[in-house]
Design a protein around this nucleic acid. Structure first.
Lengths: 309, 309
DNA sequence: GTGGTTCTCTGACTAAGGTCAGCTAAATGG
DNA sequence: CCATTTAGCTGACCTTAGTCAGAGAACCAC
């Protein structure tokens, strides 16, 4: 790959200039581990076990760090009311102040990167950083088939409903709409793909297979926080690959509401052509169809993660 | 500053995705410190003292790391022929192999960042990384007044001569050209600014003050490796500030050869206007002049670093 | 040669970051 | 009510990364 040399230069420069500085800035008067923990607890407090999970640390180690923060009167650890095994760490007033200090230090570090530049350079740096951040994040998005009953899958489907209800003029009544119930999205009747970022669900898309008719695409949704990462396009491509590999028909189709203009733009740019209404979905304004080239393999990630049908 | 939030998001994502991974990739089977040292020694070998300087490590620590690499038969440390105090570290065949392994790992890491993206995203990521790298580097450039006798200053002046000789049609004979000898660039007769990046000289620019005539700008040079960082513009701005603060005249002027088109573009965009020849410099095609607004303060960095005149 | 400087090595020491096994207490499932 | 699981704590232990003082050889200026 030709960009590799540039990426390596970037890695070297950035880890030196940002990474090292960042650590040093944060761990000025206390060990880095403690500072990170303090930060991660947050103003709301946080269960110890989720701290462990988020920072990927050993239980004994976290315990010791918390003891140390406690003895510095920055943190209070209390037994949770709902479950006597779980402990919740909360920042004291002093801890909150300390966290704000870290916050200001982070700001200062960021400022020190911008400070030596002129305005035009600053704008370019900020824009480029935004691109890098977005694209690196996009690279972490995983797309896997999930059972519609899976909690993350359910979360996505519910958010889809909420989102659509919010956007449609006059709301959305799923019972009047063409169904996409869990059992219809489970193999072999259908398929549900869920996109996730750092184990958090951020999008979904589903297929309904038919014997004689084209495969339907349903429930395309991307979380607002994850828009602009190309997740929708990736979901669509994976769905098409799955449709080509598993569906009876070589054609996929879908209907959509006029208010979902990003989705419509996506379908058009992905090679879907608008066709006359092929069903009587009351909320649809546009019907799209695409003929798939041939049974391309779904991505290796999707293949590995496929649940045993 | 408004970009701070973006910079912080960038820092978080990049240190997590790149920084942590980078360290982990490199230090898979040996401590990070050893891996970095192994890398830094390079295929040519390297004096121990410059290893220390480059990595900023304690002499005792480096010694111990070298002992450890030696016992792993990756490195040989030998007394240098030219100076019995100096030791030179060289990679053994095995060390070279190990270094190549690190090299491949770095490539693999870079590849793993690009791999999940499509071609368009890759191009954008690589371009954005280039921008970030260049602008962060630009932020590290320091500009200070230096005595023309200082080794780094001399290096710049020599490179300027070499560069000009290469670019001018038929070469350049400094003796036929208007002089800018060391004593003319030393306060109070003149001033020399040197730009440096990580203690390496990368550019220079000088002033010659005159009692009744405008201050002259001479010896503007930027190392090829540092072009595109805005060093030339910063040098010019600092020179103007110095001219305004120290010169008798409120006007600066310069002459330049037609082959130095980047420089000419810089002068034009910095507000210089072309004027009739004000001297008989045989190598010049263009004469420029700029009226300075008022005695602006030179940058704080330059003020702090000014040598006692 | 003398004295001072430079370059490196060695031994003693420290803090940070982390792993692991075993323990206790609370919750949960039957 | 008992067995098992889960959440967290504790003590023992380890590596990495680094600092510091001092020693010794080589070099350099005089």
């Amino acid at each position: 790959m030709e960009g590799v040399a540039q990426v390596r230069r970037f890695n070297r420069v950035v880890t030196q200039r940002v990474g090292a500085l960042d650590d040093h800035f944060l761990s000025r008067d206390r060990p880095l581990g403690e500072a990170r923990l303090l930060w991660e607890i947050g103003p709301e407090g946080c269960d110890v076990r989720s701290l462990r999970a988020r920072l990927g640390l050993d239980s004994g180690y976290v315990s010791r760090l918390l003891r140390s923060l406690e003895s510095a009167r920055l943190v209070k650890v209390e037994r949770a009311a709902h479950d006597g095994r779980v402990f919740t760490a909360r920042l004291t007033a002093r801890g909150l102040k300390e966290r704000e200090l870290l916050d200001r230090r982070s700001d200062a570090l960021a400022g020190s990167l911008l400070e030596p530049l002129n305005e035009k350079q600053r704008d370019r740096l900020v824009a480029a950083m935004g691109d890098v951040e977005r694209l690196l994040t996009a690279g972490l998005v995983k797309i896997e088939p999930r059972d519609p009953g899976d909690p993350q899958a359910q979360y996505c489907l519910e958010e889809y409903v909420r989102d659509i209800d919010r956007r449609f003029d006059g709301g959305w009544d799923p019972s009047r709409s063409i169904s996409a119930d869990p059992h219809e999205l489970r193999p072999p009747a259908g398929l549900l793909l869920v996109a996730s970022l750092a184990s958090e669900p951020i999008g979904c898309g589903a297929l309904k297979f038919h014997d004689r008719e084209p495969t339907e695409i349903k429930r395309m949704w991307v979380a607002p926080s994850a828009r602009g990462l190309g997740v929708g396009r990736r979901l669509l491509i994976e769905l098409e690959a799955e449709a080509a590999a598993r569906g009876m028909s070589r054609v996929v189709r879908l209907e959509t509401n006029g208010s979902l203009f990003e989705a419509i733009a996506l379908y058009r740019s992905a090679g879907y052509r608008e066709v006359p209404a092929f069903n009587d979905e009351p909320y649809a304004h546009h019907w799209f169809e695409k003929r798939l080239r041939r049974a391309a393999q779904p991505s290796s990630a999707a293949r590995r993660a496929r649940p045993s049908a």
